[in-house]
Amino acid sequence: MQNIWTIARREYRHYFNSPIAYIVALLILLTLGIIFIINMLQAVTNSLYYQAPPPDTRIVVSPLAFLFVLATPAITMRLISDEQRMGTMELLLTAPVREWELVIGKWFGAFLFILSIIGITLIYPLIMHYVLIKPGIDQGVMISGYIGVILVAAAFLSIGTAMSAFFQNQFAAFFATLVILVFFWWMVGWPANILPVGADFFRYLDMSDHFYNTMSMGTIALSDLVYYLSLTGLGLFLGSVAVEIRRWK
């Protein structure tokens, strides 16, 4: 446990020395802000003319989850591949550190970084609650939405970490992560709309289905928690295997 924390802390600090991390954070927050403003303006119009209900936190967490599809590869690409490039892998693997401690530590460092970004985005629900919407937003929806986004981020990052362990080249890791995330977030669900049978199977694989249709709307289902947590575990396991394989190569 101590090793995981030591590695995670170093990784977390590293993000604050890295331009890519700042660019990613800035782009996420900027895009989210623009989407937020557009949504709020639209909500004002809607409530004036149609007396529509005020928006909830879906206008924050839904685009946030989408932005993570694009941000995760940039955040995780160098996690492990860079150690290999700099030769520091030799240092870590000859220190009394197990492969899985290394991989989980790396992932956790990235996770803390994403949590910091998620923490900053809480400003939007706060503005909605205290300033824009009377008498305030549905806090249950907000909490479940944020739990959802955190779980999505954890799973995304574990996939990115595994790819960074598989590929020595960080750009290869970037594209592999992006392809996997795009596939499982958008494309894997498509057959569900066409196929007469087996639609449930594809819907289950679809990562976005476990978020958009449940947690972002305020429903926390055990099956969704299990889905994201097992995905995270799988990513970390594969990452550890990749590091182990590298040792034997």
């Binding site: 030591t6 170093r10 590293h14 020395n17 030769g87 520091t88 030799e90 000859t94």
Partner: peptide, 25 residues
């Protein structure tokens, strides 16, 4: 162990780096 290519993190100070290794050990 001192490998042939000295494994260092250029973005850390000397103290931070050694403290990191001390923590790992």
């Amino acid at each position: 162990y001192l490998p042939e290519t000295v494994p260092l993190y250029p973005d850390m100070t000397v103290f931070e780096y050694l403290k990191f290794m001390a923590d790992l050990r």
